[in-house]
Simulated assay, not measured.
Amino acid sequence: MQFGVFTVADQTPDVHTGKTPDDVERMRSLVTIAQHVEAAGLDVFAIGEHHETGFVTSSPTTVLGYIAGRTSRLRLSTSIAHITTNDPVKLAEDYATLQLLSDDRVDVMFGRGNSMAGYSAFGKDPRASVQLTVENYQLLRRLWDEDGPVDWQGQFRNPLHQFTATPRPVDGVAPFVWHGSIRTPEVAEIAAYFGDGYFANNIFWPKEHYIRLIDLYRERWEHHGHGPGSTAVVGLGGHVFMRKNSQDAVREFRPYFDVAPVYGGGPSLEEFARQTPLTVGTPEQVVEKTLTFQEFFGDYQRQLFLVDHAGLPLKTVLEQIDMLGEHVVPALRKEMEARRPAGVPSDPPSHASRVAARARQSQPA
């Protein structure tokens, strides 16, 4: 099973100092965090795409390409890239380029995006976000998967005539795709139809909300002939803050929670932790709560943790990663694999397995 860290790359003032990291400081911190994730023995580092002030990752392929050159083993991903406002031709070429530069250590998570700023900046109508998602992803798959030039006529972009996206994906097989969603059943359907992974953000809502979406994805995975629903490729998010003593964790994290862009001004820390997967406490408490995800959602293949949100100092973030690597992830690996039934994959599909599957599909009947 894959474990890692994802970030929204926010530039939130430190609640104690009032200092907001500038672009250079925040970008450098992301590189340091990624390197620390690898050094701690985790598997994945993922960054989100944003196009408004207060965030630094408007160009995720650039950031991930740089991090690829500073790491050797770490799997790199988005969390998410916008399938709605980015042009499918540019997505096809940028992520194939990143796949080549990273020695195939990249996958990509696509999503609609939850900020109106991105839609406005790129001249897209947020009311058409689902239709944009469907059309853009269909074109992207053709640009990646078809060996010859592509002809295309759609609703939201100019037609293509005999166009080939370059460079081509490694071995003719594109990066593995996850579809990230917090509320849209159509996204679960797209992921199931194409046999892609489905990633439930899992930091905002009670578990019942995500159970419905994941169950739908598993049902549609089986319907589309990819195998039993238990074999569908699922990823989950989570948000943690840890100290050796749970009272210390709550006391230290509360001021940051209260001003966090995605939390501040809402329920109290205690109420939010009761209603959602947020875990503030000891590493043992994080292990205990994360194991309930397997009970609620079924066996899954990727777990990513948010650890750097809301203006936390870099030193504190690196301490969180150390605790994940030393205490949390080893315990989760052992226990989750012991619980996993035979025949249920422990990891997402590898590049080699997908190359082999493509070769089998191309053989004459």
Results as ranks from 00 to 15, higher is better:
residue 7 T to E: 02
residue 9 A to P: 00
residue 10 D to A: 01
residue 16 H to V: 03
residue 20 T to D: 00
residue 26 R to E: 05
residue 28 R to I: 07
residue 30 L to F: 13
residue 34 A to G: 08
residue 36 H to R: 11
residue 36 H to T: 07
residue 39 A to E: 07
residue 39 A to W: 08
residue 40 A to I: 10
residue 47 I to W: 00
residue 49 E to G: 09
residue 54 G to I: 14
residue 54 G to N: 01
residue 56 V to L: 10
residue 57 T to R: 07
residue 60 P to E: 05
residue 62 T to A: 15
residue 70 R to C: 14
residue 78 T to I: 09
residue 85 T to D: 01
residue 88 P to K: 00
residue 90 K to P: 00
residue 94 D to H: 12
residue 95 Y to E: 03
residue 95 Y to M: 07
residue 96 A to T: 15
residue 96 A to Y: 11
residue 103 D to C: 10
residue 105 R to L: 11
residue 107 D to F: 12
residue 110 F to D: 03
residue 113 G to I: 15
residue 117 A to N: 03
residue 117 A to S: 06
residue 117 A to D: 02
residue 117 A to E: 02
residue 118 G to I: 03
residue 124 K to M: 11
residue 127 R to M: 10
residue 135 E to F: 01
residue 137 Y to C: 06
residue 137 Y to T: 12
residue 138 Q to G: 12
residue 139 L to T: 08
residue 139 L to E: 00
residue 141 R to T: 13
residue 146 E to D: 13
residue 149 P to T: 13
residue 154 G to A: 07
residue 155 Q to C: 04
residue 156 F to D: 05
residue 158 N to T: 12
residue 159 P to R: 01
residue 160 L to Y: 10
residue 160 L to I: 08
residue 162 Q to M: 09
residue 167 P to M: 11
residue 171 D to N: 14
residue 183 R to F: 10
residue 187 V to H: 04
residue 187 V to M: 05
residue 191 A to T: 12
residue 192 A to E: 09
residue 199 F to E: 02
residue 200 A to C: 04
residue 201 N to P: 01
residue 202 N to D: 01
residue 205 W to M: 06
residue 210 Y to P: 01
residue 215 D to S: 14
residue 217 Y to F: 15
residue 221 W to T: 13
residue 222 E to W: 12
residue 223 H to R: 12
residue 224 H to V: 10
residue 228 P to I: 06
residue 229 G to V: 14
residue 230 S to V: 13
residue 230 S to F: 06
residue 237 G to Q: 01
residue 239 H to S: 04
residue 242 M to P: 06
residue 245 N to T: 14
residue 246 S to C: 06
residue 248 D to N: 11
residue 249 A to K: 09
residue 250 V to K: 15
residue 254 R to L: 11
residue 254 R to N: 14
residue 258 D to G: 08
residue 259 V to K: 02
residue 263 Y to M: 01
residue 272 F to M: 10
residue 274 R to S: 14
residue 275 Q to D: 08
residue 277 P to F: 02
residue 281 G to D: 08
residue 282 T to L: 14
residue 282 T to A: 07
residue 287 V to C: 03
residue 289 K to G: 08
residue 290 T to D: 00
residue 294 Q to D: 04
residue 294 Q to I: 03
residue 296 F to Y: 13
residue 297 F to S: 00
residue 300 Y to C: 09
residue 301 Q to I: 13
residue 305 F to V: 05
residue 307 V to T: 06
residue 309 H to C: 01
residue 310 A to E: 01
residue 318 L to M: 05
residue 326 E to L: 07
residue 327 H to G: 03
residue 329 V to N: 00
residue 331 A to R: 04
residue 335 E to Y: 01
residue 335 E to I: 13
residue 336 M to I: 05
residue 338 A to I: 09
residue 352 A to N: 07
residue 353 S to F: 12
residue 355 V to G: 10
residue 359 A to E: 09
residue 364 P to Y: 13
